[in-house]
Design a protein around this nucleic acid. Structure first.
Lengths: 200, 200
DNA sequence: CACCTTATGACACTCTGTGTCATTATGTAA
DNA sequence: TTACATAATGACACAGAGTGTCATAAGGTG
C-alpha cells in the first residue's frame, strides 16, 4: 500500500532520460563545493545538463534535493509499523514498537556516509532543518496510526508521536555530528526520554 | 540577561513612528480575510501605509508576522527556567521544571484568542508550521541549559529538550484546534509522554 | 509509417528577501 | 535659533525560488 503510485507502469510515450538520484547526488556535490545558498537551482540544472523546469519536475523544491534521500527511511519505518501488530506484540509494548520502527528505518539506508553528509548539510541550514516538519509528516502520520491502533487515546498518541519524531530526528542529528558508524545507539538512547502516559 | 538588546535607549535621532504590533495585527487580519499566500508583503505594507522595505525592517520575514507574537511566551518560559534552580528545586524534579516553564509561558499571553488565531493560521500552513523549529530555537536552547544544569548528561538533555519542544508545540496546536479556554491542561497532558532516562 | 504519450525546456510571471542610497524627521547641543 | 547627529523612511534595483503555459522533441506502440 506504500507504493500506490510508485510507478505508473507506462506502456507508451517517451521514457524518462533524467535520473533523479544522479541529479540529487550532483546537487549535494555542488552544495558541498559552493555552499547551499550559493548554489541556485539554475546552477544545478545547468550542471546536470537539463532545464530548470525539468529539475522542478523531479524535485518540488530546493530542499527536496536534500530531504528526498530520507524517503526510503520513512518508508521502511512505516512498513515496520504496519507489520508490528500483525505479528503479535512482542514484549516491551508500544515503546518497543516505536524503537523497532526507528531501527528499521536506519537499516534501510544503503550508504550511511551519504546520509551523514545530507544531515550535516541540514544541520548547518536552519531553513533545511525546518523542513523536517514537512518531510517527516508522513512518518508522523504513520506513528500516530500505530499508536492509536495500540490502544492509546488519540490525544496521548498525538503528543507521543510528536515527541517521537523530534527525539529520533535529534538522534540522527547527533549521530551525524559524531564520527560513530552506527546510528542505532543514538536512536535507542533518544527513545529513552519517552514513556507511555500512565493510565493509557 | 534576557533583555540585553531589548531597547538601545536611543538618546537622539528620529523616533520610530511605526507600531510593529499594530502592523502585525493588521497583517493577521489580512491573512484571515484573504488567505496567507494571497496576501503579499506589499499588500500589507500598502494597507499599513508604509513601504515594503520598512515592513522588512521590523519583520525579517512573512512568517515573522505570525510567529513574532510567540516571543513573550518564549521569554516568560525562559525566565521560569532561570529562576527554577535559584529557588531550590521543589518536588517532581526535572520534569516539574519543564512543566512550570511551559505553564509560565502560557500565563504570559495577554490575549488567548489572538494566540489561538495565530496558531490556527500556523496549523493551516505547513510552511509556517515548519518555522517552529527556528522560532523556538531560543526556547530549545534554554531548555537544554536548564536540563544540563539539572545534572542530565548532555546527550539525554538534547533528546529530552527536543521532545519537550515538540510535545508542548503539539499541545498548543491541539488547544488551538479545540474550543477550550485554558491551554494548561493540554500542556500538562503533553508532558506526560516524557520521562528522564533512568540512570541520569 | 502514423500515432500517441510523455519528457523537455523556452518564456514570462509573481513574490520573497536583500542591498544601496538619498531623503526626511526628530532629537540634542552650541 | 542654528547646526548636527541619529535614525527612520522609502525609492530603486536585483537575485533567486517557485509556478503556469505552451510548443516541440523523442521515444514507444500498432
Amino acid at each position: 500500500m506504500l507504493s500506490e503510485d510508485a510507478k505508473p507502469a507506462r506502456t507508451s510515450g517517451r521514457p524518462a532520460t533524467i535520473d533523479p538520484e544522479a541529479v540529487a547526488g550532483l546537487a549535494l556535490q555542488l552544495f558541498a563545493e559552493n555552499g547551499y545558498e550559493n548554489t541556485s537551482m539554475e546552477d544545478i540544472a545547468r550542471e546536470a545538463g537539463i532545464g530548470r523546469k525539468s529539475l522542478y519536475r523531479y524535485f518540488a523544491s530546493k530542499a527536496d534535493l536534500v530531504w528526498g534521500g530520507s524517503e526510503p527511511v520513512v518508508e521502511a519505518s512505516a512498513l515496520a509499523f504496519g507489520s508490528f501488530h500483525r505479528e503479535g506484540k512482542p514484549d516491551g509494548g508500544v515503546l518497543a514498537g516505536l524503537r523497532e520502527a526507528a531501527i528499521a528505518g536506519a537499516a534501510a539506508i544503503p550508504d550511511l556516509s551519504v546520509t551523514r553528509g545530507r544531515l550535516r548539510l541540514i544541520a548547518e541550514h536552519p531553513e533545511l532543518t525546518s523542513h523536517s516538519y514537512e518531510s517527516l509528516s508522513f512518518q508522523r502520520e504513520r506513528a500516530l496510526v500505530f499508536l492509536t491502533d495500540s490502544g492509546l487515546p488519540i490525544s496521548s498518541a498525538r503528543f507521543l508521536s510528536a515527541a517521537y519524531l523530534a527525539a529520533t530526528f535529534e538522534a540522527w542529528m547527533q549521530w551525524a555530528a559524531s564520527p560513530d558508524p552506527d546510528p542505532v545507539p543514538y536512536l535507542v538512547a533518544a527513545l529513552e526520554v519517552l514513556q507511555v502516559p500512565r493510565g493509557s
